[in-house]
C-alpha cells in the first residue's frame, strides 16, 4: 500500500524527460498512473525516479490527419472514447476503450500509458495491432516510428529504448466498407479480459474481402490471428465463417491463471473470434 522511496521529477520539457530517462534505466514514466501506481503500492516495482510527463505540452489530444488519426499519448481513455474523430474514423478504438476498467480509471488512465505498459491483457494493444497502428517515439535524438507489429516485445515490455517516450500513435483510416467489433470476455465489468478479440472486417457483395483480428490475453504480447485472417478472405458471410475461426488459437500461447487455463482460453478465442467477426461483418 505504501510504495518504496523514489524520486519524482515533473518534467518541464520533453527534452528534460528524455534526458532523465536516458541517464537512469530504473526511472519510469508516470502518465495517468493507473497501471504503474498499483505496482508501486504493492512493491512489485521499485523505480528510482518517476518522470511525470503530465504537464508536457503537445502530448494530448486527437487529430484527424487525413489518412490517419493521431492520438496523443496523454489523451485519457475518456477523451478517446468520446472523441468524434475516433468514433467516426477508427470506431474500434472507441469500442475497446469504452470497456477499459471503470469510469474513474478511464478519466485518469491514458491511451499511450496503457499501450506503453504492454500488458497483453489490456484491451488497447490488440486493437492497435489489428489496425496496424504506428507508434511515435520521441527522444533526444528525435522521432522514431515503430510499427505496431514491432512494438510489443514481451510481457510488459515494449521496443521503446531507454530515453524514449511514447508521444502518440497513428491509427490508419481503413476507409469505407469496414465493420468493427471488440468482443471482451470477462467475469466482472471491471475485470481484465480473460480473452478479447478485436475485429475489423471489410465486406463486399456479401463476402469478406479482408479481415483483421487482434487477440487480447492469448500470449505474452497481443497477437494477430493471421490464420483466421487468411482463412476468412473471400468467405461468404454466414456458416462458412465459423470453420475459418477455428484457426483463432493457432500460434498462441495463452497464460494459465485464476480465471482460465490455456485450453479454455484457446476454446474461447475460437468462439469469440467467430462472434466478433459476425458482429463486425454485420455492420459494414
Amino acid at each position: 500500500m505504501i510504495p518504496a522511496r523514489f524520486d519524482y521529477l515533473r518534467a518541464g520539457s520533453l527534452e528534460e524527460a528524455c534526458q532523465a530517462l536516458a541517464s537512469d534505466e530504473d526511472a519510469k514514466v508516470l502518465a495517468g498512473g493507473q497501471s504503474l501506481l498499483p505496482l508501486l503500492r504493492l512493491r512489485l516495482s521499485y523505480p528510482t525516479t518517476l518522470v511525470d510527463i503530465g504537464r508536457l505540452p503537445g502530448l494530448s489530444g486527437v487529430e484527424d490527419r487525413g489518412d490517419h488519426v493521431h492520438i496523443g499519448a496523454m489523451t485519457t481513455h475518456d477523451e478517446v472514447m468520446r472523441s468524434p474523430v475516433v468514433t467516426a474514423a477508427c470506431p474500434l478504438v472507441a469500442m475497446a476503450t469504452a470497456t477499459v476498467a471503470d469510469p474513474a480509471v478511464r478519466h485518469r488512465g491514458t491511451f499511450g500509458g496503457s499501450l506503453a505498459h504492454g500488458d497483453p491483457a489490456g484491451d488497447l494493444p490488440a486493437v492497435v495491432l489489428a489496425l496496424d497502428g504506428v507508434f511515435v517515439a520521441r527522444s533526444a535524438r528525435g522521432e522514431r516510428d515503430i510499427p505496431a507489429a514491432e512494438f510489443f516485445v514481451d510481457y510488459l515490455e515494449s521496443s521503446l529504448r531507454p530515453g524514449e517516450i511514447l508521444a502518440g500513435v497513428r491509427i490508419p483510416k481503413l476507409g469505407e466498407g469496414w465493420g468493427y467489433h471488440y468482443e471482451k470476455f470477462h467475469r466482472t465489468a471491471q475485470a481484465w479480459a480473460i480473452v478479447g478479440v478485436a475485429a475489423a472486417v471489410k465486406r463486399s457483395n456479401g463476402a469478406i474481402q479482408e479481415a483483421r483480428v487482434g487477440l487480447t490475453n492469448m500470449g505474452s504480447t497481443p497477437l494477430r490471428a493471421r490464420a483466421v485472417e487468411a482463412a476468412l478472405r473471400g468467405v461468404e458471410v454466414g456458416e462458412q465463417v465459423r470453420p475459418a475461426c477455428e484457426a483463432a488459437a493457432e500460434g498462441t500461447s495463452p497464460p494459465a491463471d485464476l480465471h482460465a487455463q490455456p485450453d479454455y482460453r484457446r476454446h474461447l478465442a475460437k468462439v469469440l473470434t467467430y462472434r466478433a467477426i459476425g458482429k463486425a461483418a454485420g455492420a459494414p
Binding site: 504493492l42 467475469r187 466482472t188 465489468a189 471491471q190 481484465w192 485464476l258
Partner: peptide, 16 residues
C-alpha cells in the same frame, strides 16, 4: 493466498 488483491478476488459491482 493467490487472491490477495481485488484484481484476483472478484467482487461483483452493481454493473454485474
Amino acid at each position: 493466498l493467490l487472491t490477495a488483491t481485488m484484481a484476483d478476488y472478484l467482487l461483483p459491482s452493481a454493473a454485474d
